[in-house]
Design a protein around this nucleic acid. Sequence first.
DNA 1: CTGAAAGCGCTTACAG
DNA 2: CTGAAAGCGCTTACAG
Lengths: 340, 340
Amino acid sequence: MSTQRPTMKDVAARSGVALKTVSRVVNGEPGVTQATADRVLAAIAELGFRRNESARLLRTGQTATLAFIAGQVADPDQAALYRGLEEVAREQGFLLYSGSTDDDEDREERLALALCARRVDGLVIVPTAGDHGYLAAEIQAGVATVFALRPPEPAGLGDVVVADEPGGAKQAVAHLIAHGHRRIGYLGQPGGPDPQDTLAAYRSRRLALGYAEAMAAAGLPADERWLSLTPGTVPGAGVTAVFCGGKAHTAQALHALAAAGQGADAAHPGRVAVIGFGDFELAGLVPPGITVVSYDPARIGRTAGELLPRRLAGDRGPPRLAELPVTLIPRGSAEFPPPD
Amino acid sequence: MSTQRPTMKDVAARSGVALKTVSRVVNGEPGVTQATADRVLAAIAELGFRRNESARLLRTGQTATLAFIAGQVADPDQAALYRGLEEVAREQGFLLYSGSTDDDEDREERLALALCARRVDGLVIVPTAGDHGYLAAEIQAGVATVFALRPPEPAGLGDVVVADEPGGAKQAVAHLIAHGHRRIGYLGQPGGPDPQDTLAAYRSRRLALGYAEAMAAAGLPADERWLSLTPGTVPGAGVTAVFCGGKAHTAQALHALAAAGQGADAAHPGRVAVIGFGDFELAGLVPPGITVVSYDPARIGRTAGELLPRRLAGDRGPPRLAELPVTLIPRGSAEFPPPD
DNA sequence: CTGAAAGCGCTTACAG
DNA sequence: CTGAAAGCGCTTACAG
C-alpha cells in the first residue's frame, strides 16, 4: 500500500558503500572522502531517504519527547500553559505529546502509562482529583514529572507548579478595602469535602483561605454567609463588593448582579464592586471592564518545563513547589467606593 | 543516573524462560502453561517490567501516532479543533503529538519534517501562508495528511477541511435583511493581496465573497466603502448593520460603536446591528448579547481525524474538500429593525 | 578513510 | 508447549 521508505541499507547498496559510511555522512561525522560522501549524498537524494528518527532514538536510549496531560487542552488556561511548555520544549529540542483526561481519573492513568510506555523523557500533568500512586514507579524509573495547577495525591510524588491563589485573594481583598469596601463577599465553589474535587474547587479553597486571612488581617468581620455566597445570594447578601473565585463564578456574579440592578457600572445606584480570579477574553469589553487578579498560565507551563532538565540530569532531590505570583488588573468594576 | 528499566531479556533471565515466552505472556498469546505464565508474571511484577512500546512499534513498522500542527494551539478555535481530533485519535488508539508554528513558515516545515522523521502515521495541519511543497514527498511516502481551516499551497496537496465561510456570510446578511436592514457593511481584513496572508485574512476574503453575493442576490447596492470598512469608519459609514469577519473585528466594531453612542443595545437611538463571524467566550454577556455565525472547530478536528484512516488504509484517490456548515446564533445584537 | 559485527528492545517466522 | 535465530532501522565499539 504505502511506498516503502528507503533505509540506510538501501542508500548503502545504491552507493556501493557500507551502512556505517552512510551513517557517517548522514551524521556529518568526519573521516569520509568528499568523493564517497558525494556518492552517498546522491543516493540519498535519488532515493528520497530520510532517517527514521525513532529508530535512531531507540538505539540511543532516549526519546527527546515530552508529554503534556491536561484536564482539557481546550481550556484557555491550560492551552496557555501548554504554550509555555511548548516554548521550552522547542528550545531544548523536545517533541511534545499531549492529551486530555476530561478530569477522568482512569483516563489520566491510561494516558500517562501509555505515554510512559513510549518512554517519554518527561511528563507535565494537570492532575485529576484521583490517586497518582500509579506514577511512582515511572518516576522512580526516571520519568521527569511535574504537576501543574495543583498538587498530586499523595503530595510529594513530584515537583509542583501552581499559582499563588492565597496571595491573589489577599491582593484582591486589599484592593477592595483600599477603595473603601468593608462588607466583602466571596463567591466560590460550594464548600465542604467534595467527592468531585475539580481543579476549580481546589483553587476555590485556596482562594477562600486567602480571603479569610485578608479580612482578618484588616480587622474586618467575615460574615459566614459572605464566605459561602452562591450566584443567587450575591445580590441580597448586603455586601458592597464580591470576589469571585474563577471565570465561571465571575460570569455568574455579573449576570446575577445585572439582573438585580446592582451591576458594577455607574448606571446602577446600588452597584456592587466585582473582582474576579483569572483573566478571560473580553474581560475589558464587559462593561464597565472587569477587574481581575490574573495568573499567568503560560508562565506556569514554562516553569514546569524548566524544572524538567534537572530531573532528567539525574537530580533526585526532594520535590520542589513553585507558587507563581499573580497580578491585579484594574479595569473599572472594582475601582469605586461603596454607595453609602 | 536513572534506574535502568528492566527489559524482556531481564524478565526471561529471572524466570528462567526464553525471550519469546515472555513475549507470549506479555501479549496474552495462547500456548503457555499456566505454571510458566505465573512464573513470568511474577518476574514481571518483581522487576516492575513495562514493555517499551516504541521498540515494539519499530519492529511492527507503525507508530500509532498522529500529529497536530497548529498556528497557535492556544487559539481557542484551534484548541477546540485539537479536541475534536484528540477524540478521534483516542477512539482509534493513536497518541497525539502537537505543536505550534506561530504562523512562521520555516517553523512549520521544521516541525512537520521532525514529526515525519518520527514516522507519525498522520498529520493534521493548520497551514501557514507559505509553500507546502516540502510535504509532497512525505505524503507520497504514506503520511496521511489533512489541512484544516484553510487549504495548502499548492492546493491539491492533500485533503482539506474548512468552515463554509461564504455560506456563513450569506446567512448573516440574509438574517439582517430579514430584520429590515438594507444598508449593511462588512468589517474584515484590509483587502488586497497580502504578503502576510494570515488565517484571518483568508477567512475574511471568503466572507467578503459571501457578503457580496448575498447583497447582490437581494438586489441591494453594496457601496464600495461598505465592503472596506475599518473599525474607525464603522460609526460614520451610514450603515444600519455591520457583519464582522472575525472575533477581533467584532470586538473592534463593538468598541467603536459603543464609543460613538451607536452600540447595539436599546439605550442607543441610532444603534447599529452587529453580527460576528465566530463565536467567543462571553458573547452572551456583552450587552445586548452578540449574535454570531458560529462554525464548529471541534467538528473540523473530528472530520479531519476521520479522513485519516482511509488514507492510512492506502486510499490514494484525489484530495477531498470538506466545507462544514455554520450556524447562526441570535442573541440580540442583530434582531431589531433599522432606526428609520 | 572504510567496514563487519553486535546491539537498542521488541516481534516475526520457523523449528522442535 | 517452548525456544533459537533473524530482523525492524539505526548507532556503538572495534578492526583494518
